[in-house]
Design a protein around this nucleic acid. Structure first.
Lengths: 196, 196
DNA sequence: GTCTATATGATGATAGAC
DNA sequence: GTCTATCATCATATAGAC
């Protein structure tokens, strides 16, 4: 910062780009360190913005988190696609393929990672993830597929485990395995859990 | 604290029980909130001990964490038990059974949960878990069983996922499923990954 | 061994000037 | 919209009295 009299207060010219900048920085830091680990000040620093602005826009830290976590697409649309997008004998493969494709999108991945990291250390984070998995996922799948909930959960556990090994711990060779390799290994497992 | 003159400094009578009390409280809080989330003060409060004592005994927070995490048994003994404790066609079942039995022990579970929770939000926590999984587990198994590392990792992912659903998120019905139910579902999966 | 007192710094949040 | 200043709270860690 070498601007002689310091940056002046007051609205800056041009279209407002500071909100998206804040959200992007928030997603990155929440994804990397979880809810507690990412401080408002650090987020403000990353977005090159004053910390007070974040309070001004989003009220408090939780408001910021919620705004930053908003899903980039509707999860109620992608689930039927898996369940009824083809023959039942291929549901395992279809599920693994779509799952990996969704996680391949950076905007989804950063949000989901933030939720997972937060779930590990804060009770409200755990509740958020638990309710998503049970209501949005387990509930819907159990309703559409006549399969015991325990089988579905074990299948979800397999995919959650893969995500953690791949994106949280970044263990090789699973971190840089191709989607195709993973489909080959995982599809039969999911098929066994969810096929009739 | 109503003791009229306040509790006096100086060594208390009787055998020293404050170290184990500190370690027990540390394990409980680390397991519940991870490394960052569990403060030395909170641990001291839970152990009914002065925070300065913890520094006196263990130097700093990391020293306390290491002391509290020390494994209650030798992991290099249990792995051969799984690998060579019976016929290869039953390795999946053997693995799931022993895995669930170990996690059933509270002293193991609290330590392992603390490591998992810490891995989600701190880089050194992630390194700790990563090195355990790769060196102590993946390495040994890959050496003894002629199976591609990716297959082993996908199997580890399945079990890690189950633990997270069961003990971190506590989702029903997997949280209160019997070991036997889980063996029935998981053993064939692990057998497929690790069987020859 | 046990405790008090304190150094030092980060955090979330608010009030108010420009 | 943007910023400074500040409050209250919490953290880890240390020095030293008893």
């Amino acid at each position: 910062m070498v601007a002689p009299p310091g940056r002046k207060p007051g609205r800056r010219p041009g279209p407002t780009e500071t909100r998206p900048a804040i959200l992007a920085a928030a997603r990155e830091l929440f994804a990397g360190k979880g809810y507690d680990g990412a401080s408002i000040r650090a987020i403000a620093r990353a977005a090159e913005v004053d910390p007070a602005l974040i309070h001004h826009f989003y009220g408090n830290k939780e408001g910021l988190f919620i705004a930053a976590m908003e899903f980039p697409f509707d999860p109620t649309q992608i689930i039927p696609q898996v369940l009824t997008g083809g023959p039942r004998e291929e549901i395992g493969e279809r599920l693994v393929r779509i799952f990996l494709a969704v996680w391949g999108q950076g905007d989804f991945r950063s949000r989901a990672l933030a939720v997972i990291r937060s779930a590990a250390t804060s009770e409200q984070g755990a509740t958020l993830l638990r309710e998503f998995l049970t209501s949005a996922l387990l509930g819907r799948v159990a309703e559409a597929l006549e399969v015991p909930r325990l089988r579905i959960l074990v299948g979800i556990a397999q995919m959650v485990g893969v995500v953690i090994m791949r994106y949280v711990l970044e263990i090789e060779p699973i971190a840089s395995a191709s989607d195709e390799e993973l489909v080959e290994l995982l599809a039969p497992t999911l098929q066994r859990y969810l096929g009739e």
